[in-house]
Design a protein around this nucleic acid. Structure first.
Length: 302
DNA sequence: AAAAAATGCAACCGCCATTGT
DNA sequence: GACAATGGCGGTTGCATTTTT
């Protein structure tokens, strides 16, 4: 029997009872979770909002799986953990906030882009003599930046995946339906970490350039590989200026033409720099980009 | 059978990001 | 820009359960 304990505000802590679960589940299914801070009071649960949120997200949500992980799930967690080992905070494209505030046409888009960019300042490395930003807008969880190259009459669209900024466990959980980030984290810490360490003992899976003290540097290496592209850094003093150097490699291997789907943090992007020819098709899926845009328009236009 | 140790996992805590004013 | 409220994440803890001695 779990002993009930209470915090200084008289709110219950510790394991949830069936009665509490029922109250919380019933309330959220009927009214949704509009405000976690106020919800417990309305749901009749003597818990803090954070505790309610955690209980819902990790246990009470519909379609949550419980119990043992299948081998496929374990393998997927290991694989994704290997790829997403460090939380991705590397920003590849930068745009100075005010620069595009007037470019956005719809107020909603402006607001969304503004709030996102305030915390994740973007900067695109463009030379105004050669290119200009045509439009910036919101497409589901992505920001789409449409650039036109002057003189060449060509343009391309950069689609930046905001999910790239989610935490590691959340990103893994997104690939495992029915599993919460907390559950996956526990699974990793209690089982999979040992399994992986056992597999790796005596051999290192990290590259010779891997710098254990500097994961960010590794990420840059992994992202840009051995190409001549200069990875912009958040610490760069010049990063405050919009009109900086063009985001182009020193050689002519990577010359943008046509419309590219560039999601700087997904695996296709990384692979692209490592094996440009074989991944070219993935990168030039115009159809995907424009069908996504069509969906966005359908969803948001009268 | 009982005690000790190990394990697993739900829940908590603190920090930081996000959003509103 | 400053501040406050809220939300989300990662690391950790505490306790129930299982395994070992």
């Amino acid at each position: 029997m779990v002993k009930a304990c209470y915090d200084k505000n008289g709110l219950k802590k510790g394991a949830w009872s069936e009665d509490e679960d029922t109250k919380l589940r019933t309330y959220i299914q009927r009214y949704g979770h509009w405000n976690w801070g106020l919800l417990p009071k309305f749901a009749g649960v003597s818990r803090c909002g954070k505790s309610c949120r955690l209980r819902w997200m990790n246990y009470l949500r519909p379609n949550m799986k419980h119990g043992n992980f299948s081998k496929e799930e374990d393998d997927l967690v290991i694989d994704l953990h290997n790829k997403l080992g460090n939380k991705f905070v590397q920003i590849t494209f930068y745009v100075k906030t005010f620069t595009y505030m007037h470019i956005c046409t719809a107020d909603l888009e402006k607001k969304l882009v503004y709030y996102w960019a305030r915390s994740h300042p973007l900067k695109i490395w463009l030379n105004p003599l050669f290119a200009s930003i045509e439009n910036i807008f919101w497409v589901r969880h992505c920001i789409c930046i449409h650039v036109t190259y002057k003189g060449e009459f060509s343009s391309e669209a950069f689609l930046i995946d905001i999910c790239s900024f989610m935490g590691r466990w959340s990103r893994i959980a997104a690939k495992l339906p029915g599993r919460s980030d907390n559950e996956i984290k526990n699974r990793w810490n209690t089982h999979l970490k040992k399994r992986v360490q056992g597999d790796q003992s005596g051999s290192t899976s990290l590259g010779p350039d891997h710098d254990q003290a500097n994961p960010k540097a590794n990420l840059v290496k992994e992202t840009y590989g051995s190409s001549n592209i200069t990875a912009p850094t958040l610490d760069d003093e010049t990063a405050g200026d919009f009109w900086t150097e063009p985001f182009l490699p020193d050689d002519d291997i990577f010359v943008p033409s046509g419309n590219y789907l560039l999601s700087p943090f997904n695996f296709e992007f990384n692979d692209y720099f490592n094996c440009q020819s074989s991944c070219h098709d993935v990168m030039t899926t115009d159809e995907f980009l424009w069908s996504t845009l069509d969906t966005y328009v359908e969803d948001n236009m009268e």
